[in-house]
Design a protein around this nucleic acid. Structure first.
Length: 1009
RNA sequence: GCGCCAAUAGCUCAGCUGGUUAGAGCGCCGCUCUGAUAAAGCGGAGGUCGGUAGUUCGAGUCUACCUUGGCGCACCA
């Protein structure tokens, strides 16, 4: 006996029951351990940060991470799955800063780094419970008991080891160059972080500035009035740092005569820049201008700013600037020629400030330009300018005012363009020349690209598109951060000789000569690690740690080794199959995040990729197609959906609604539909089966021979389904797998079960009935296994009841079972085609009946079908019985041409179907019998009888009714489980109804025996 | 500016290597059926397959360009 199953089901409650049972029986752990010894299947979990509530997009990625390993386990793979937590970095620090009401680094220093970092440590697991419970509730099976945690000493130690490997290969260097710098956070950002923060339509100044030529240069050009180079900029605050102007050597420049002066600019830019109509007084090539001199707008000596000098040479070497220049009077700067000067915008004369801007900086190196840095790392103007102390963007208007008062401002407007902002704190980024630590990823660029070739991307276009492009444009990874809460850079610098040493682990550090400051319990974070000093191995001087921490993306990218504390433990990591990963899955934004950091680190360390297959998910939008954000108030709360429809419905929606890589519009209605259309349909089939199987005390027996065409058909479909789902999941395509299952369940319910109902109802336990039971049973059990990776709860509910009730020794959970294997010998494509034909003809037959307004319950003599082909004809003749039952006709005639009759016809797909509408007295009587049966069955239900209750039926009516009741007595008794049919007054206590059927009065009474 | 993805019915999506009147589900309107079904059946309204040009005997499907939306890249002074 199976456990009774009601057709109505509360999915969330059912799931909670399963959840508790899984937990109690440790099914996850056992599902992993049961496959020990099998081939490994490795999932790398991209670690989330638990300092915020998990959202619906986290559910999306987690269910996609879940499905593949579940499938692999059922295929025999050993797939332990380790959870992970990302705990370091700017996002965490900013959360804490917000909490403490801080607005910058000074306040953190004042507050104390130890206290600050302690707060960070607390903050990263603030929502741990929410994460754990949501993870569990959506059945993302991953070992949450033993997660890797990026802030653990062991994790940090592995990261140190990673850096040391790179250091030894010469892949880590300190470069003085322009990096995107966040003035609020006071740190550099990597190019992938910058990519996260571009904003369009940012309004900035667009100004044309006049740089006065020296008298000598003016005379060289033969200009008699005061003359100016006209240059354009959108960042007036960089003007005090100007130390050169650049021109395109091949371009033509002109001097335009204004009222009291000449303006020099590119001929091609004259109109756009403004002075279009004024007379031209000279033409020069760009190269003729090169070497000319002009007066700086702001002489650094007058404003208390150091005047340094860029020095050509190895740009990665530290200390590329000579000592301070002494004042020269008057100070003059040079025009240089450069290939980057475009004629697309501006004036063809580019303002160069080597302290800001990458191109400027490089130009400085090449031309030994002065280096003037009038802005500090907080983005404030230094020196004693009138606008000193202001944040650069606030200084802009003051600078322009100052220039205007000195008649050096030609035009001042605003422009809308794209500008990068800090992805975390929204401050405008400044390109700022300073020292930063780099990982020389460009040294391995070719391997990064060829390694990518070995990775399977889903969707495929990411491989050569977004990710491939990113690798093609690879630049060295600026991976140091001038911050507090992060993995400390394991570099110590000698205070005497300036040499660096990279430390690869705790033991090594402890063994350093003269080491001091190592406190127990060990905490490798700042400020504790900063106190550790030792003696320089070269000169014996004091080694102190470089103050920076590292980019948290480096932390997570190092997880393949760090999660196992490699190489300090798990020395065999590279040999025992735990590296590389078979599968990772995150959203598309990780192309420049985790997908990249994993790939870069793995390639630099091991010269190979560390993942083989990636599902790259698209983003979730709301039902209107808008981005979800707290500000818009359109964020979907996962719990609300789960508590209403269950986790399986949500999972199923994510798998099947659209392909993984697409953006998706999330709507609750879609989940409601899935619940109704798919899960309820399936559940009803299941409930139907259990109900009748229990009545008949059915015990599954796979040896019963299959009896009917219908059984052969659904088994054919089932085996094809197994093959299809298996192939889809093997190809990382849950969408196709789910959709195929949906189609099957629809056919199972609306054709197989509908067509088979009578086989289950009939009284005798014959071979046909057994065959039906066994077939449906087999379908449901197989379905539960096929569905297990997608809808683990529903699958489990079906499996537990259907399988364990009959086979107590079977694996206790569907997730411990093997994935079904298709028996392709059972697949019969001809039969499938024929059945489709039957469905179509039946449909047309019903349509024809509908035209004649004759209800299906009224039997008719025959259906006439004109088949389109011989094949169709043969199929129809073979399966005529199914059509006859479905359309309720006594015969089916396949004809060459339809007769010239006034009977309704329906046609489609090369088929023409006509129904003989003549109702003979015999047919009318049978129709009446069926009508009476129908009423009696409705009455049984109204009276509250059980499906299996036997009854006594009484009836009163005219002669016709009497004839029908006696003529079809067996039929009526069988259909209504009536032990007797008695003419006359209803018995006492009977449930009685009066009906008028086809003009005949009839009184019916039913009573339980 | 360059690149990627998407654009098919009111909504969500199928339409493989180009082949007869373009499909499904949901929604809407009407009818029917119902002892597994909060189902099912039948009919109806609803599509110039984003646009233009081309390749072809034939294009939703291939090519080019364009439009819109999303995303990414970018030295933008």
């Amino acid at each position: 006996m199976f456990e009774t199953v009601k057709s109505k089901v509360d999915f969330p409650r059912m799931e909670e029951g399963i959840l508790a049972w899984w937990k109690e029986k440790n099914i996850f752990g056992r599902s992993v351990e049961a496959r020990r010894g099998g081939p490994r299947f490795v999932l790398y979990e991209g670690p989330p940060t638990a300092n915020g509530n998990p959202g619906i997009h986290h559910v999306l990625s987690r269910v996609f991470k879940d499905i593949i390993p579940r499938y692999k386990v059922m295929k025999g793979y050993y797939a332990p799955r380790k959870a992970g937590w990302d705990t370091h970095g700017l996002p965490v620090e900013l959360e804490v800063e917000k909490q403490l009401g801080f607005s910058g680094k000074a306040q953190i220093e004042e507050y104390g780094v130890a206290r600050f970092n302690a707060k960070c440590r607390d903050s990263v697991f603030r929502y741990l419970r929410e994460w754990d419970s949501l993870t569990e509730r959506i059945a993302f099976w991953i070992d949450q008991q033993h997660p890797y945690i990026t802030m653990d000493n062991s994790y940090i130690e592995s990261v140190w080891w990673t850096i040391k490997q790179m250091w030894d290969k010469g892949l880590v260097y300190q470069g003085y160059r322009v990096t995107p710098h966040c003035p609020r956070c006071g740190t550099s950002l990597s190019s992938h972080e910058v990519a996260l923060g571009y904003k369009d339509d940012v309004e900035d100044p667009s100004v044309y500035i006049k740089f006065k030529l020296t008298d000598e240069s003016r005379q060289k050009l033969g200009l008699e009035k005061p003359s100016y180079f006209l240059a354009w900029t959108t960042t007036p605050w960089t003007l005090p740092g100007n130390t050169a102007l650049a021109v395109a050597p091949e371009a033509e420049y002109v001097a335009v005569e204004m009222e009291e002066e000449y303006l020099v600019m590119a001929s091609a830019r004259r109109e756009a820049a403004g002075p279009g109509g004024e007379p031209v007084r000279g033409q020069f090539s760009g190269s003729a201008l090169a070497g000319l001199e002009y007066q700086p707008l702001f002489n650094p000596h007058e404003y208390g700013i150091d005047r340094l000098r860029s020095q050509a040479g190895d740009k990665e070497a530290a200390g590329i600037f000579q000592a301070q220049e002494s004042p020269t009077t008057p100070l003059a700067y040079r025009v240089i020629s450069a290939d980057f000067v475009s004629m697309e915008d501006g004036t063809g004369i580019v303002h160069i400030a080597p302290a800001f801007g990458e191109v400027d900086f490089e130009a400085g190196l090449r031309h030994n330009l002065d280096f003037v840095q009038p802005v500090d790392l907080q983005g404030r103007v230094t020196g004693n300018y009138p606008f000193a102390g202001k944040f650069v963007k606030q200084a802009d208007p003051l600078i322009l005012e100052d220039l205007k008062s000195r008649n050096l401002l030609f035009r001042s407007e605003t422009i809308r363009h794209t500008y990068p902002f800090c992805w975390r704190c929204d401050a405008p980024l400044l390109y700022y020349a300073k020292q930063t630590w780099y990982v020389r990823t460009t040294a391995m660029k070719d391997r990064l690209i060829s390694g990518n070739g070995e990775i399977n991307w889903y969707p495929e276009h990411i491989k050569h598109g977004r990710f491939g492009d990113w690798l093609q444009n690879n630049v060295d990874w600026a991976f140091s951060r001038e911050r507090y809460w992060g993995t400390p850079l394991p570099l110590w610098r000698c205070q005497s000789c300036g040499g660096y040493e990279c430390v690869s682990g705790v033991q090594e550090l402890k063994a350093k000569p003269g080491v001091s400051g190592l406190e127990e319990p060990l905490d490798l974070h700042r400020p504790f690690v900063d106190q550790v000093t030792f003696h320089c191995s070269k000169c014996g001087g004091e080694m102190r740690r470089a103050p920076e921490v590292i980019d948290c993306w480096f932390d997570s990218g190092a997880m393949p080794v760090a999660q196992w504390h490699y190489p300090f433990e798990n020395e065999t990591l590279l040999e025992n199959g735990r590296f590389p990963a078979d599968f990772i899955c995150e959203a598309v934004d990780q192309t420049r995040g985790w997908f990249y950091s994993l790939h870069a680190i793995s390639t630099l360390l091991f010269d190979r990729p560390c993942y083989k297959n990636v599902i790259c998910l698209g983003h979730i939008l709301d039902a209107k197609g808008e981005k979800m954000s707290k500000a818009r108030g359109n964020v979907v709360e996962p719990w609300a959906v789960i508590n209403k429809y269950g986790a399986d419905a949500l999972r199923w929606y994510f798998y099947t609604a659209t392909t993984p890589g697409n953006v998706r519009r999330f709507s609750e209605e879609a989940i409601a539909e899935i619940s109704r259309r798919f899960f309820m349909t399936l559940w009803n089939v299941y409930s139907f089966f259990v109900t009748y199987a229990n009545i008949d005390r059915f015990a599954p027996d796979s040896k019963t021979p299959v009896q009917s065409e219908l059984d052969r058909w659904i088994l054919s479909e089932l085996n094809q389904l197994i093959a299809d789902v298996d192939a889809a999941l093997a190809g990382y395509d849950p969408t196709e797998a789910g959709r195929k299952i949906e189609r099957f369940v629809d056919g199972l319910s609306n054709w197989y079960v509908r067509r088979s109902r009578r086989r289950f109802w009939k009284s005798e336990n014959d071979a046909d009935k057994l065959s039906a039971y066994n077939t449906l049973y087999h379908c449901l059990v197989t379905l539960s296994k096929l569905m297990a990776p997608l809808a683990p709860f529903t699958a489990e509910a079906l499996y537990r009841n259907l399988v364990l009730s009959a086979y107590p020794n079977a694996p206790e959970s569907v997730h411990l079972a093997d994935f079904p294997v298709a028996d392709m010998g059972r697949v019969d494509h001809d039969l499938e085609d024929e059945t489709r034909l039957v469905m179509t003809v039946s449909s047309l037959g019903r349509a024809a009946r509908s035209q004649a307004a004759i209800k299906v319950r009224q039997p008719l003599a025959r259906l006439l079908v004109k088949a389109g082909s011989d094949r169709a004809r043969r199929g129809l003749e073979r399966l005529a019985g199914q059509v006859m039952e479905e359309v309720n006709v006594k015969g089916l005639e396949v004809v060459e041409a339809l007769p010239e009759k006034d009977w309704p016809v329906a046609a489609d797909a090369g088929l023409e179907v006509m129904v003989d509408t003549e109702v003979t007295p015999e047919l009318a009587a049978e129709g009446m019998a069926r009508e009476i049966v129908h009423r009696l069955q409705t009455m049984r239900r109204s009276a509250g009888f059980d499906i299996a209750d036997h009854i006594i039926t009484c009836y009163q009516g005219d002669d016709f009714v009497g004839q029908v009741m006696t003529g079809f007595a067996d039929y009526v008794r069988q259909e209504t489980l009536s032990e007797s049919l008695e003419a006359g007054e209803p018995e006492d206590g009977a449930f009685v109804e009066r009906h008028k059927l086809a003009g005949h009065e009839i009184v019916l009474g039913v009573k339980k025996v």
